[in-house]
């Protein structure tokens, strides 16, 4: 008597684990290829740098919130077109 072909068991019929996605990024006006996280990081680094430089050199003439506004605009520009 011929054996019946084994049916695939339900336990083995699970969705395979997806391979890790490689974020290759894109090239905007920044000189390097970046993904969204990279641009957020660059924006954050510049935000801190602008605030520190403002505190050191410009706060005597202009208040700090202006630096915050400039940094946030710059951060948006980098994340959108960087």
């Amino acid at each position: 008597m011929a054996e019946e072909p084994q049916k695939p068991s339900k336990t083995n019929n699970t969705t395979p684990v997806a391979a890790p996605v490689r974020h290759v990024g894109r090239k905007g006006f920044l000189p390097i290829t970046t993904n969204l996280w990279d641009r957020f990081f660059i924006g954050g680094v510049l935000l801190v740098a602008i605030h520190l430089l403002w505190l050191r050199f410009i706060e005597f003439y202009l208040p700090l919130p202006i630096a915050t506004v400039i940094s946030l605009i710059l951060m948006y520009v980098i994340m959108r077109w960087g």
Binding site: H51, L52, L55, R56, E59, L64
Partner: peptide, 10 residues
């Protein structure tokens, strides 16, 4: 506020 950082940059 940011006084510690204000002091720090000087």
């Amino acid at each position: 506020g940011v006084n510690n950082y204000r002091r720090l940059v000087f």
